[in-house]
């Protein structure tokens, strides 16, 4: 036994195979390392920040003024801004996304799918800075004709454009969920004399509901982390306003503003970047976990 092991160890072929396996494992380990580094850098500087500004003040303060005296680091106005964008974008993207996915999965014939699916893929691939431009130079002027009192930079325009941005994600993930519903279930419905409408709304949608919900959560989590469109189109006015026609500032836009301000490392403003980043990371991580859980439920069922 001992001898055999020895031979194995000295065999250059085996050694090479082992070396390759370790090299490949180190590649895979990089992805774990990235997570560790993200958490370490965010926590490290966020902890610095919380020695200067208490967590309670950060999480419950209603005034955000990182670079103008008197300094104030209350994150609530930014959370309010992000929440507004998220709600508006969800109102746009959730019904449209589900309707599109029901149409593509249950009704559309092959030819239509062949056109619509690539179009949605292109929509998903458009850079976010382009969406910001589109909101500012197209959507806002259109909104101005409807609401003359609207600000040039406003939450509504940015929210709508973020909705368009997450629409392809919601529709394609929901469609995947609906397509994975076995035809037996549909046929069972038809055999009972149900109409197509009844089969779709009474069987297919309920059967794939966990997948559909998982797509909402992923889409919304993407809206929360969206940066450029809201930085360009929603304005930079951190306030607690919930009027969609007014300027607001999201967590992400505030991070861009601080980063552009060229602040020195070690100041509270610099460290506040990491505190907001940590908050953002925790929120999106939690949402992704929930979405994963929901997705695994429909994967198990069929």
């Amino acid at each position: 036994m001992d001898n055999r092991l020895k031979i194995k160890r000295t065999n250059p072929k085996v050694l090479k195979e082992r070396a390759i396996k370790s090299a490949l494992f180190s590649c895979a380990f990089v992805s774990l390392l990235v997570t560790i580094l993200i958490i370490a850098t965010l926590l490290g500087d966020a902890i610095n920040f919380f020695t200067e500004v208490s967590i309670v003040e950060f999480l419950t303060g209603t005034n955000w003024s990182p670079s103008m005296k008197p300094y104030s680091f209350g994150v609530l106005p930014l959370v309010t801004g992000t929440l507004m964008i998220t709600v508006i974008s969800a109102v746009v993207a959730v019904p449209l996304g589900v309707a599109t996915s029901v149409y593509l999965s249950e009704y559309a014939d092959k030819k239509v799918r062949k056109v619509v699916k690539p179009v949605l893929e292109v929509l998903a691939g458009i850079p976010t800075v382009v969406y910001g431009f589109f909101a500012l130079t197209f959507i806002t002027p259109v909104l101005q004709t409807i609401f003359p009192e609207i600000s040039l930079y406003n939450a509504l325009s940015a929210g709508i454009v973020v909705g368009i941005m997450i629409l392809p994600m919601i529709s394609s993930l929901s469609e995947d969920a609906m397509s994975s519903v076995p035809d037996d279930l549909r046929d069972g419905g038809y055999a009972l004399g149900a109409s197509k409408f009844n089969v779709t709304t009474g069987i297919v949608v309920p059967a794939s509901i966990s997948g559909i919900l998982s797509s909402f959560i992923l889409g919304i989590s993407r809206a929360i982390g969206e940066t450029m469109a809201v930085t360009i189109a929603a304005g930079r006015l951190a306030n607690m306003s919930v009027d969609p026609l007014k300027s607001i500032e999201t967590m992400t836009a505030a991070m861009v503003e601080v980063a552009e301000g060229d602040i020195a490392a070690g100041t509270a403003a610099y460290d506040s970047l990491f505190a907001i980043g940590l908050l953002l990371f925790v929120i999106t991580l939690a949402m992704n976990m929930v979405s994963q859980y929901l997705k695994s439920r429909y994967k198990e069922k069929y």
Binding site: T35, G225, T227, T284, L285
Partner: peptide, 8 residues
């Protein structure tokens, strides 16, 4: 990691 916002 795929779901972490790009700004992070």
């Amino acid at each position: 990691l795929a779901a972490v916002p790009s700004i992070v």
